[in-house]
Nucleic acid binder design. Structure first.
Lengths: 343, 343
DNA sequence: CTGTTAGCGCTTTCAA
DNA sequence: TTGAAAGCGCTAACAG
């Protein structure tokens, strides 16, 4: 069986309060006593029971993290960074996976609440999420990442998606492209609309249009990248550059183009977004807009833990900037040895 | 504040024991009383505090999961499957990330032990891991996946790696290849040695050799795939087919070959292993040996939870079979319109 | 500087 | 069928 605070007290011949003081590094303990307690702790291999601490002192040092889907795409790394950031501050992470299903999300987060959770990091909550209110009512700090969530007691760490759209357009324009297409994310999600707005506005500034025939609404999955290229073709689009609003769709687009005999980037430049680890492993390596997920998660955890430590829930919003990662899937147009690519 | 069992008791006008009985679905409660308690529970939005339950009854319904690295490669999906399997049985998951560092692993798993963890799923523990003993001593069931761990109180769910090696060889031989190279995983890991053994033996049966010049020891990362192709070349290897012991190295190899102007699969067939989601997203899509991670994790969780429920720790070993997933990166040799590829 | 005491929210005998 | 009481391991006043 596992040694408890009592065992230490008994062995040392002191009270459990003294042991507790040593464990929690509080002063007001005779150095000698402290030393003897320490020794006993080491000898008996004692580890304080966080469950009991949590129950008593409301600080179980546990953070709940909810992610939509950890398999593929940008969010697979959230877990890793969250674990690290939390652990470095002495917190463990309980993870739930909501599959973008609001009902499941609710059930799962409830299961978190039944523990002495000190804080919650939410990814992509559905806008109408009722559960947030319940968490707030318990006075537990919440940080939402990736999607802004307006609430007086909820903090946000998000990307400047409008700017991402602008950067995508700037990159393509700078390379000389004028006939440009785009595979978007679901347009019911504000982040897709923001990206599109930035993209369109920047193109428009240079007098470049983005007609409906050059747009395809995808769902951020690989398959819609493939489908997108097909659809664009059926819509009669003619373009020398394509922006897919995430890397997965970018991969799909590259694949579809490849199969049609269209060369990337010689005939069509493909630009992605996210900068997944595998973006540099495909051929050609994907030029993409870097989504600073690591920083996003780290900032979110910082925010969360600072609120936990000061035991005051705030509403703070941090906006992070995207950046360009230029690789091999985009190039100048017309190309050096010009040969009018026309998918 | 959050409603407790006391609040329910007060509202209903009964004792907390009665409420407890209702919560835990025990009989010996008057139907009427039960109904009134239920109503109060619903009305006050009461959720039993698992922390307290765990403290008192030693069943916090929490499972600790340790993975080496959740970012990239086959193990990024472990998390997802583990969450699902655990949740379906009413358990939450606390996750730690050991980065293949035995010391960190130990610290992290200790942090798990300080909670009322009911079971532990370990991935790739270092063979000399001291921590396992400590967990066992606390009578907590352990399941190790991916790497066998011999211990009378530890269960294992592993892949038949020898067979994977055989299958790789069979596939390549069946396609007509005779000059074959291999980029292995670290050979200090038994799983790499097993795969290699199966591969070599099967080749040998057909009189095909695998000389040192046709071998490169990688570390399962993308970069060693690239490096592997370079090294093989420096070693003067001439081959028409290459097995990389995981997909990541396979991607690297394809990339390096591509940059050398060697066509895959026309000149060289490349075979991977793992069957990552992205294996079908690269060009050409990677033929690979499917590593049934989902099943692996599900079986592991089953084993774990059944041991938890029966509160007896056992040592059981489950061996899973690999299978082939044939895509576009391997083809017949000599090819239809033969043209002697020689990287 | 140290010990005593009263719980945190819950389950579990043991009586009634 | 129900309740009282003890206690899981720990912290936090409050005394000494």
């Amino acid at each position: 069986m596992m040694a408890s605070i009592k065992d230490i007290a008994r062995v040392v011949g002191c009270s459990i309060s003294t042991v507790s003081r040593v464990i929690n590094d509080r002063d007001g303990v005779d150095p000698l006593t402290r030393k003897r307690v320490q020794e006993a702790i080491d000898r008996l291999d004692y580890v304080p029971n966080l469950t009991a601490q949590g129950l008593r002192a409301k600080r179980g040092r546990l953070i709940g993290v909810a992610i939509p889907n950890s398999t593929v795409g940008a969010f697979s790394v959230v877990v890793q960074f969250a674990l690290e950031a939390a652990y470095s501050q002495g917190f463990n992470v309980v993870l739930v996976n909501s599959h973008d299903d609001p009902d499941l999300e609710e059930t799962l987060i409830k299961s978190l609440l039944s523990r002495e959770i000190n804080g919650v990091m939410l990814t992509r909550v559905s806008d109408e999420s009722k559960i947030v209110t319940k968490i707030v009512k318990r006075n537990i700090p919440i940080v939402v990442i990736d999607r802004a969530f307006e609430h007086e007691n909820v903090s946000n760490v998000v990307l400047d998606n409008y700017k991402a759209g602008c950067m995508a357009a700037e990159h393509l324009l700078a390379l000389g492209h004028r006939r440009i297409a785009c595979i978007t994310g679901p347009l019911k999600i504000s982040l897709s609309r923001e990206r599109l707005r930035g993209f369109q506005n920047t193109l428009a500034e240079k007098g470049v249009g983005l007609p409906p025939s050059h747009l395809h609404e995808g769902n951020f999955l690989y398959q819609t990248g493939i489908l997108g290229v097909q659809t664009l073709r059926e819509q009669g689009a003619s373009y020398t550059a394509l922006w897919a609003m995430n890397d997965l769709m970018g991969f799909g687009a590259m694949r579809a183009l490849h199969e049609r005999g269209v060369r990337v980037p010689e005939d069509v430049s493909v630009l992605g977004m996210d900068d997944l680890e595998i973006a540099e492993m495909v051929s050609p390596p994907l030029t993409t807009i870097h989504y600073p997920i690591k920083e996003l998660v780290e900032r979110a955890m910082e925010l969360l833990i600072s609120q936990i430590n000061s035991s005051e829930v705030r509403s703070e919003t941090i906006v992070l900037e995207p950046s360009m990662t230029i690789r091999g899937s985009t190039s100048l147009h017309p190309p050096a040895g010009s040969s009018a690519g026309r998918p």
